[in-house]
Design a binder for these strands. Structure first.
Lengths: 213, 213
DNA sequence: CAATAATGAAACGAAACGTATCGTTTCTAA
DNA sequence: TTAGAAACGATACGTTTCGTTTCATTATTG
């Protein structure tokens, strides 16, 4: 998966029909489907996202999509996972720097790539489907653990007292980020018009965590 | 609206057919529609919520619903507005008390009434419809202003320094609350199994806000 | 070569969307 | 009293999407 030409039909053109490659999945089909899904999300958002639309765009059969993904939520999750969210990899030397950098990068990732449209759609779908919610909760737990490690590293470095309220800090960071995404509030800071409030949020959180140690 | 018997069909029974009451809207129809919408959200969540289902349940015509609400998002907004979110009215004597009480009440409101299902649906719909997002942003601005007043009252009382970072505090409070709702994390605290982490979140936020004054 | 799994095209019945049409009811103004 | 207007729910409509089934074809494996 990901190593093959996707054979996604550019809009308006017919791609060669893919056929079976024998008793195994065709990675070209998978790529085509995931890329089509991503393109549609980018172009029309969740409102235009349907299995029908993805199948059409990918030149794939609906049975193929349903064979691998039970519903559109699951497909969304795979689209997001594929977008390689490496933005969380930070190491600026200070905890405050790490958190500011992490969030700055996350917002840019959400803003400048189809990832933002994808992830907000995942959250939306999770409100109407219990299985999707469970998947999202699991995903969140994983991400929280990672950020918890970033914070623990800061503690080890002495940037934060050992008894700082780490669970609250991590929860509030994610609440902040998600809310920015869901309210469409991830525009790039612009020193002339939109001052960057993100560092102030991080500062408040870190000082609060330290003060509750 | 709200003063009349709704004439909502109990499931399985036929309500008397409503007719026109002359060249104005029939408040009984409006009530029936809003109540049906609320009931469906409670029972099936957003997945079962459709204009068709509401019309059937309310014994109303789809043209009637579309006459008054452009789409299901708008209907959701009215359902939520109708649920009288008075939980924000707090006055415990201290700012920390106020914020803890406010959030405790808000979570109970979301948990114990159809309001939670409604509001999470509103947020979900806002991810696929720009007009719904605009309405949600407006609603949020209003609620932030109110909480800002609660905080300002605390500042006047001396619970928080005058130069506390009020914008960050308010934004983080809402991020926290929304995220709890969206991840299904609003279960009632249970001292034996689920300790109440909410006061710790509030404490961190208040100390952080104070420390950034 | 036969069996198997996979592939996309096509078809299907059901459901929902948003709109149009209809007969009926009620209200208001003349 | 009458005519006109707005509203009401029932019905119908064309379109889209859902999830599933069927089909002919392809490639792989034993």
């Amino acid at each position: 998966m990901g190593e093959h030409s996707a054979d996604v039909a550019p809009k308006g053109k017919a791609a060669p029909r893919r056929t079976s490659i024998g008793g195994r999945r065709n990675p070209a089909s998978a790529s085509a489907i995931l890329e089509a899904a991503e393109a549609i999300l980018s172009e029309t958002g969740l409102a235009g996202f349907s299995i029908e639309a993805v199948a059409r765009r990918a030149g794939a059969g609906k049975p193929t999509i349903y064979r691998w993904w039970p519903n559109r939520s699951a497909l969304l999750m795979d689209v997001y996972a594929r977008q390689k969210e490496t933005v969380l990899r930070v190491d600026t030397g200070t905890l405050e720097g790490d958190l500011v950098e992490l969030l700055t990068r996350l917002f840019a990732f959400w803003r400048d790539t189809p990832a933002g449209a994808t992830f907000r759609s995942i959250i939306a779908e999770a409100q109407s489907d219990p299985a999707s919610l469970a998947a999202l909760q699991s995903f969140l737990a994983d991400r929280r653990a990672y950020v918890g490690e970033v914070v623990a590293r800061g503690i080890a470095r002495g940037d934060l007292p050992p008894k700082a309220d780490l669970p609250s800090l991590v929860e509030l960071i994610f609440g902040f980020a998600w809310m920015r995404l869901l309210t469409g509030d991830i525009a790039a800071p612009d020193a002339d018009h939109v001052p960057d409030a993100l560092p102030a949020r991080v500062r408040l959180l870190l000082r609060g965590a330290a003060a509750t140690a």
